[in-house]
Amino acid sequence: MIYLASQSPRRAELLQQIGVSFHQLACEIDETPFHVEAPAEYVLRMAREKAAAGWQALVTRDSAKIPMLAADTTVVCNDQILGKPQNANDARRMLRMLSGKTHQVMTAVAVTDGSQLKTELSVTDVVFNDLPDSLVDDYIASGEPMDKAGAYGIQGYGAVLVASLSGSYSGVVGLPLMETARLLSDFNVPFWQAC
C-alpha cells in the first residue's frame, strides 16, 4: 500500500494496471519553472516537491506513514517546456509547434518514506504527424487538450496526432511503469498484487 500524491485518473489507472494498492492524496505546489531551469531538472524537482508535500500532509494529519509516490510530466519542444495550455489559443500555439516534429515527453517519478527520497526520469521521443489546421481546431473543440501538458493526451483523441514514439508509452500518459516498479521495489512495495 502506498499514497499517490495526485488526483490524476490516468496515474491511478496505471498503478492499478500493475496491481499496486494505493490511496490518492491531492497535493498543490507552485509549478512555475525557475528562470534558467533545464526541462529534466524542472520535472525532477516537481516530482520531488509533490512527494515532499504529500509526505508533509501525512505528518500533519498523523496518517499512516507508508511510502508516498508522486510524478510530474512535461512536454519539451526545442528545449521549451510546454505545460497545460492557458486557453484555446495557447493550445493551438503548442499543437502548431509540435506539428510534424519530434518532441520529448519527460516524466519524473519520486518516492519517499520520510527518511529517503528516490527519483527516476523517463524521456520518450514522440513524433507528431503534420497537423492540418482543421484537425487542430477539431481537437481543441473536443476539450481534451485543455488539461494536458503540451495540449494533447496520447491515451485519448490525441492518439491520432502521433506518428510514432520511442520510449515509454506509459511515461507519455503520465507514469512510466518500469521506472515506477523499480522505485517501489526499493521501498519494498510489491506490484502485481490484487488490489
Rank of each mutant, 00 (worst) to 15 (best):
M94I: 08
L95Y: 08
I29Y: 00
W192N: 05
L44T: 13
S8K: 04
V111H: 08
N89G: 07
G156F: 00
S185E: 15
G19I: 04
S185K: 14
D133K: 06
V126R: 00
S164T: 15
V136S: 00
Y139W: 10
L98C: 05
A108H: 10
N87E: 10
S21E: 09
N188C: 04
V136A: 01
P190A: 09
F187W: 03
D125C: 03
L44G: 02
F191I: 09
P67M: 11
L4F: 06
P176Y: 03
Y169K: 01
Q24P: 01
K148E: 09
A91F: 08
R48Q: 15
K65E: 12
Y42M: 09
V105H: 00
D113K: 13
C27P: 02
G156M: 03
L183N: 07
A70N: 14
C27F: 00
A40V: 08
V36Q: 09
S21K: 04
T112R: 09
L161S: 04
R61C: 09
V59T: 14
R10D: 01
V173S: 02
T112C: 06
F22C: 04
V160C: 07
A64C: 13
V127P: 00
C77W: 11
A38P: 04
V36W: 03
Q86C: 07
F34A: 09
D113P: 05
V76Y: 05
P176H: 03
A163C: 03
V20Y: 09
Y152P: 10
V136Y: 01
A108V: 07
R93V: 12
P67N: 12
V162K: 03
L184T: 00
D125G: 00
N87G: 05
E37Q: 13
P9A: 11
L14Y: 06
V75Y: 02
T107L: 01
R92M: 01
V43Y: 00
G150C: 05
P85V: 14
G19F: 02
I154K: 07
V136I: 15
G143H: 11
